[in-house]
Design a binder for these strands. Structure first.
Lengths: 285, 285
DNA sequence: TAGTGGTCTAGACCACATG
DNA sequence: ATGTGGTCTAGACCACTAT
């Protein structure tokens, strides 16, 4: 199947093309009865109109609804049956869309209960974004303390990575993760100022829990994915002082770019990891 | 559904319980017509017999067939239709099993062509297991050279990680990955001797291509998954010499345990990464 | 033209959670 | 008892590949 909301490829030869809701088709229904003309012609004319299967269009609509805040993290989304009715497709098609979103950790499903918007308040999410592990094995119990939080003019590379306009301000945060009261990770974050108005050091210090949970709850920004680059470096003076180690000792540098819906970049994070008793865990699957 | 090959839970109340092939049921067919008795009783009697849905049983059977070498890497497996007939289930059930195997990179599907056993000879596989990237971006063109290959009595931790019997020998390999003729990664591998008989330095040096491709083609061992632990360390003398750097300079240490079918561990690998112009890439999804 | 996987539908029933 | 997601089936048609 290749149907789309772009009206161009309604012209398929399926018997019954279920409408995707009245608001979706820009063309009169009749167009979809002409077999293999509109689609073929348009394929030639407009190079690369992206055709996508129904379930993926549903997925996109769900994604947009989530992005717009229609359902909040932790809340239940409508049931498969309900969504199928709403979008005018079969339950199986909705299911496939939801399954992909669940695989991407955007939603979580609970048999018998429903489908929910996933949240950084769940343990599950913290496992995904905190890769520090004890050498002995297992997740370390960490404590976070905010060392610094101020609005800054970000470095050029941060501006670029966050796709900010030149001159826009950013929020800079420095925080220490301690394990058993010993420094383990020094994190330096940059956030787009426009998305995090009112983020102050006091606010951060009051908050107990993962930063991402605060960002999600108070600023409506959910981190969905991240890309990281890891290096072993000699620890610079600034960071060595804060970590309580000699300048030049090896530390693991973790550069992260986090994205939210539509792959919009919303966080640059640089972590300095002490890896004497801990390590960065990764699973190749 | 909760049906299983363990004969115990054939007693479900579905109208038609498709047999999973004549060899699968230890009970007479009649048992499956008794609604909700055998299953309930057995559930009480035997604590925790693992029930699994049909598609997962199919997946397991496919996995075992692959493990036994019934279909070789690169080869096509029977079509969905064929497998459905063979196992006596619907095509949709087979499809679900195959989809999971494809998600785990055990199989690859190609529309119009068929479903194939994936192989380390494909570029796809190399992307998964080589995480070194240029800082500029993109996969570096690497050259591998074998420095050492001999049978050894492995260190105790390697023996344990590979679940080998005490006293069993291992194959130890040292190889350098160079990028643009400069050393980039020094790898030290331990492999169970029993699985890699006849693996010699000559054989390794002759072979062009990824080690895993050789292991797969010549020794029938496919790496399917791996777990890695990363640390920043001061480079030890031995490795510094080979890498051409000063002793004590920071290097990225990557400890890998690779597994094959049934999560059997089959490789311990320790990599020393120079991360001046390169980095270890990771995607948090 | 035939065969493969990919999408979509419809309907049944099971398993789980809650009231 | 009801509503949710989870499994399984059957059948239709589409898209792609090869011959």
């Amino acid at each position: 199947m290749s149907r789309d909301l772009l009206s161009l490829n309604q012209a398929t030869s399926r018997q019954e093309a279920p409408s995707l809701g009245p608001d979706l088709s820009g063309l009169p229904k009749a167009a979809s009865e002409l077999p293999g003309i509109g689609a073929e012609a348009s394929k030639e004319a407009f190079d690369a109109p992206t055709f996508s299967p129904l379930y993926r269009q549903i997925k996109d609509r769900l994604m947009r609804a989530l992005d717009s805040g229609e359902w909040q993290p932790g809340q239940m989304v409508p049931s498969e049956h309900e969504l199928a009715k709403r979008y005018g497709v079969s339950q199986g098609t909705v299911r496939k869309a939801i399954e992909e979103l669940a695989a991407e950790h955007v939603l979580v499903r609970h048999q018998g209960k429903g489908t929910f918007v996933s949240s950084h308040h769940e343990e599950r999410a913290q496992f995904r974004f905190l890769r520090l592990r004890r050498d002995a094995g297992g997740l370390p119990a960490t404590e976070s303390s905010i060392l610094e939080c101020r609005r800054v003019r970000p470095p050029a590379d941060v501006t670029r990575e966050l796709q900010m306009r030149a001159g826009e301000s950013a929020v800079f945060i420095r925080r220490m993760l301690t394990v058993d009261a010993f420094p383990a990770v020094l994190d330096e974050l940059w956030l787009p100022g426009s998305l995090f108005r009112g983020l102050t050091q006091e606010r951060l210090q009051q908050y107990k829990g993962p930063l991402y949970a605060l960002f999600e709850a108070s600023f409506g920004t959910r981190m969905l994915k991240a890309r990281e680059q890891l290096k072993a470096i000699s620890c610079p003076a600034d960071q060595a002082l804060l970590l309580g180690i000699e300048v030049g000792k090896p530390v693991l540098l973790v550069d992260r770019l986090s994205t939210t819906y539509q792959d919009r970049p919303v966080e640059v994070r640089r972590g300095f990891y002490l890896t004497e008793k801990h390590h960065y865990f990764n699973a190749l699957v």
